[in-house]
């Protein structure tokens, strides 16, 4: 996707975010209000200026054509999907099971590791995680199955 357009969308998103924060801030009591109000107003005005500025630049560029930078979207989205999938697995089946499933799938499909070495890695990680959690008194995310 064109980087300039993406930037435009992102600034638009920030503008909406600041404006919503502004509206929300109006509902706070007087003492809790001033700070978020100041910054959300400043934020939405500045993003608005930035947005206009960007539109102007893009408009000018249109006339000249060319030199647009493409940003690949599909790949990052795929990897973000992996991360979200991992979290979902943790939510459903607990850290240990999720880690094992995620790791083995990822290592085989994405890292193109052999099954054997992937298996060894998974075992090492599981042992390391459980050692770490007992040695450092670490908490694990809770999950639906209660594992």
């Amino acid at each position: 996707m064109n980087k300039d357009y993406l930037n435009l969308i992102f600034s638009g998103f920030l503008f909406i975010l600041f404006t919503l924060a502004w509206i929300e801030a109006l509902t706070f009591s007087k003492l809790g209000q001033f700070f978020p109000l100041y910054i959300s107003i400043a934020g939405s005005i500045l993003t608005f200026i930035y947005l206009l500025n960007q539109l102007l630049i893009i408009y000018k560029q249109k006339k000249r054509e060319g030199n647009e930078i493409k940003i690949p979207l599909w790949q990052p989205l795929k990897y973000i999907g992996w991360i979200l999938g991992y979290l979902l697995l943790i939510y459903i089946g607990g850290l240990m099971a999720a880690t094992a499933i995620f790791l083995i799938l990822f290592l085989i499909f994405e890292s193109k590791m052999k099954f054997v070495s992937a298996g060894i890695s998974v075992i090492c990680v599981l042992i390391a995680v459980s050692l770490l959690s007992s040695a450092l008194d670490i908490y694990w995310p809770t999950n639906l199955l209660g594992l």
């Binding site: 240990m96 099971a97 599981l126 594992l147």
Partner: peptide, 8 residues
């Protein structure tokens, strides 16, 4: 898996 499961 089994061992770790027991552990938890």
């Amino acid at each position: 898996f089994f061992l770790l499961g027991c552990n938890t």
